[in-house]
Design a protein around this nucleic acid. Structure first.
Lengths: 285, 285
DNA sequence: CCATATATGTAATTTAATTACAATAAACCT
DNA sequence: AGGTTTATTGTAATTAAATTACATATATGG
């Protein structure tokens, strides 16, 4: 966890002198990392060992170690801060902001994702007779991507972005089939229906969606990403990137689980593409 | 500038012993920031003053200051360290690695992307009579996503992942039309053809592809991302995420350029979804 | 109001980093 | 090639910084 946040959060556990130290650090963090313990002690008007004790209370090895942690916190420009694009932003500004907030979202997702559920999802997927990916709107392209990945594994995969097709497919599902429903909000009615229907037909339903959403309640397994993005107001951006990374993770887990002989399949798929591509370093006629 | 980059760049200015130090640091940067100068000297098999001189050569005040800079570099994702998934990795390991290397890729893309070209691409897109997104394989889902975004702007948008449709569409393009071709490698023959045909028919062709690739040569404008990923060997993962973020950026630039009255359109699209969704905090019947 | 516990500071000690200088190795010039 | 100069590296001494041990002060509960 970020040291700066930690200081703010545990300010109640601090003693009077330690609080003085905290204030000085929060006021000039950049100066702090270039100060000696003596200089900082003077600034906070406390003794050197007090500063040292302060550092230890924050679970660092000592003052130098504390400075290291502080430096790392400061390096992350704006950690966890989802910088919103403003009306008057120029290309440079909005490009930077979008990259940064996407990265912040991934970082947050990484810390919140449940490894156990991922592992179980991989389990389920490797044993699936057939895998279906369903999504609507922005999540449809994520479903497409998932199809493109899992198709390489030589497993029966389907993907529909059409409600009617999704319904028919869900109705036809049977035990051993896995249905993956993708929705950031988890409040898309049609997709909830799909999940319900699939479950009624004994399929295992994996939801890539918000925890505690209507869709989540219909799923056997919920992979929640917890990306703070209001897709009711803005276009889905970071949320959908996180979903894609999750798909990458599932696909990776899948290949690893299947073992080495299986990986020859991937090579075969890759080789089949060769004819349709220009060779590397080759120039077109 | 990033200290790690600096080390790599100025490796030529180093003496023999300094190079030994550089190698050790690049190999275990995380260990370095928690080591004393003595420990590092021993690891690199040089004397302590040599390490100190090494730090000074990189414009730091000394060893502790160098560690601070290094810590800051490491905090920004892990530049240059594209961690590959290993056969024996468990769910925890591969999940972390995929998140991290995706973030590293975005960080690298952010620094390499050309703002000017983005600005010009936005220019071109805002003035387009019709926008077409074409991609094949993994890039097809990126094209889909782009369609989903630009469609909201009430501009004629098409997206095909079928070669024949792409060809027909390209042949029918005319001046004022914009064709966006998406391909990580830029070596997919069919897509190069599409770009050529579109250009012959006076359309503006934007390539989201590798700089200096066959496809890039056929485009009017090239948005290069420079994500180090070998899609000949592995499944496209980070590269495709970077492409999506680029699309997000173009879409954002688009809305900003169009001004406020235009944004009402977005609201309209959003509102139209309301009926198909469960209300927030609402529980399904 | 005393006893105990907690917090803070002073001084000593230890550890780490830097400097000054010597030795070695490399480059350069007759 | 051999001597001279310059750059590189290491050893030992010095200095600076951080930590520990201990003493004092301040607060807290009976």
């Amino acid at each position: 966890m970020n040291v700066l946040e930690k200081i703010v959060n545990s300010v109640t556990n601090f003693s009077k002198s330690e609080r003085k130290v905290a204030e000085v650090i929060l006021a000039n963090p950049q100066t702090t990392i270039h100060s000696s313990i003596a200089a900082l002690a003077k600034m906070a008007d406390v003794s050197e060992p007090t500063v040292n004790r302060f550092c230890r209370r924050l679970d660092t090895k000592g003052f130098p170690d504390f400075k290291l942690h502080l430096a790392q916190s400061l390096a992350n420009g704006t950690p966890y801060v989802n910088r919103h694009v403003e009306e008057e932003d120029g290309p440079e500004a909005y490009t930077a902001k979008i990259f940064e907030s996407t990265m912040a979202a991934l970082d947050s997702a990484r810390h919140n994702v449940d490894i156990n559920t991922i592992n179980r999802a991989v389990d389920v997927l490797t044993q699936a007779k057939k895998i279906s990916f369903f999504g609507l709107g922005a999540s449809a392209s994520v479903a497409h991507d998932a199809q493109n990945k899992f198709f390489r594994f030589n497993v029966p995969v389907v993907c529909f972005d059409d409600i009617v097709m999704q319904r028919m497919s869900a109705i036809n599902s049977a035990e051993g089939d896995v249905v993956v429903c993708i929705s950031h909000t988890g409040r898309t009615k049609n997709l909830c229906d799909i999940a319900t229907i699939a479950r009624e037909n004994d399929a295992t339903v994996i939801g890539v969606t918000a925890y505690d959403s209507p869709l989540a309640r219909e799923c056997t397994l919920v992979l929640s990403l917890d990306v703070p993005e209001d897709t009711d107001m803005y276009m889905p951006m970071a949320s959908r990137v996180a979903q894609l990374v999750l798909i990458d993770i599932l696909a990776t887990g899948f290949t690893l689980r299947r073992g080495s002989k299986f990986r020859e399949n991937l090579k075969k798929v890759k080789d089949s593409l060769r004819g349709s591509r220009f060779e590397k370093k080759d120039h077109p006629a």
